[in-house]
């Protein structure tokens, strides 16, 4: 079966909206409802966070949601259980995002097989570096039709970007600035230079810009330089509100996609 991420980027070349949330937050059993609401509101791609006790690449908002999710009892096992019928509900591309240690403890092979079974299309594991991926993980990922999504940053050299482009499938995650997730930023000259440098390289993979995308303005700006953008912390923050879930999701997504 064709990977849903590839299918998405073949059909949609611009303003692709990807949204991240932490599984198990705000409530343990919210996972499927959040996915359904995101789909209903026209999101193109969903990243489901697997919470970890020590998320070093994340800022305060996702640190907090991870902590609460773990306190709620979330685990990879529990998440797979929640997602077991998800493909009867939606065909949207789904990516699991999390740190390497919980995956190692689950067992890499078992984890990848389970991903295929429930219908996961890709993985983002920030602390799984390129060299370790190639040596120890690539074949089991590929055997299970899982795309590993790599990050690039303003400090990534051209050579390394080409290497990452060569090994990537699906898309490349362009970290907008030197930052942990959720850091506040608007597009600076420095970032514009970086975005334009990457665009001029004519990489084979589409790019999605993430980190610091929080409203319609930052989303629109990011979309000028890439196929689309990824929103994480701002959405997780919105989920922390007291309104009904349905309302929180639709209000937030509308605030992003509506031109101001």
């Amino acid at each position: 079966m064709k990977n849903r991420i590839n299918k998405l980027f073949q059909e949609k070349k611009e303003r692709v909206l990807s949204v991240y949330f932490t599984a198990g937050y705000p409530d343990l059993e919210d996972t499927v409802s959040i996915i359904q609401e995101l789909v209903k509101n026209g999101v193109d791609l969903i990243e489901i966070g697997m919470p970890f006790s020590d998320p070093v690449a994340d800022g305060p908002v996702i640190q907090r949601s991870s902590l609460i999710a773990l306190q709620n009892g979330m685990s990879i096992r529990k998440l797979f259980d929640q997602l077991k019928d998800i493909r009867q509900v939606t065909d949207i591309p789904l990516i699991l995002m999390g740190y390497i240690n919980p995956v190692l403890q689950y067992g890499v092979e078992a984890f990848c097989e389970k991903c295929r079974e429930v219908g996961i299309d890709g993985l983002i594991i920030p602390d799984l570096p390129l060299s370790v991926y190639e040596e120890d993980f690539r074949s089991v990922f590929e055997n299970n039709n899982l795309h590993n999504i790599f990050l690039i940053t303003p400090q990534t050299s051209d050579d390394r970007m080409r290497t990452i482009d060569g090994i990537s499938e699906g898309f490349i995650y362009m970290v907008s600035s030197n930052a942990t997730t959720g850091a506040k930023s608007s597009v600076t000259d420095f970032q514009r230079d970086y975005f334009e440098r990457v665009n001029s390289m004519e990489l084979k993979n589409p790019r999605m810009i993430g980190f610091g995308i929080s409203n319609s303005e930052t989303f629109r700006n990011a979309c000028q330089y890439a196929s689309g953008a990824i929103i994480g912390s701002a959405f997780v923050k919105a989920l922390g509100g007291t309104e009904p879930l349905e309302q929180k999701v639709s209000q937030f997504i509308n605030s992003i996609v509506t031109e101001s």
Binding site: L128, P129, Q155, R160, N178
Partner: peptide
């Protein structure tokens, strides 16, 4: 070195 890409350089 299980580092995020941001720490690679």
């Amino acid at each position: 070195a299980y580092i995020p890409e941001m720490m690679v350089p």
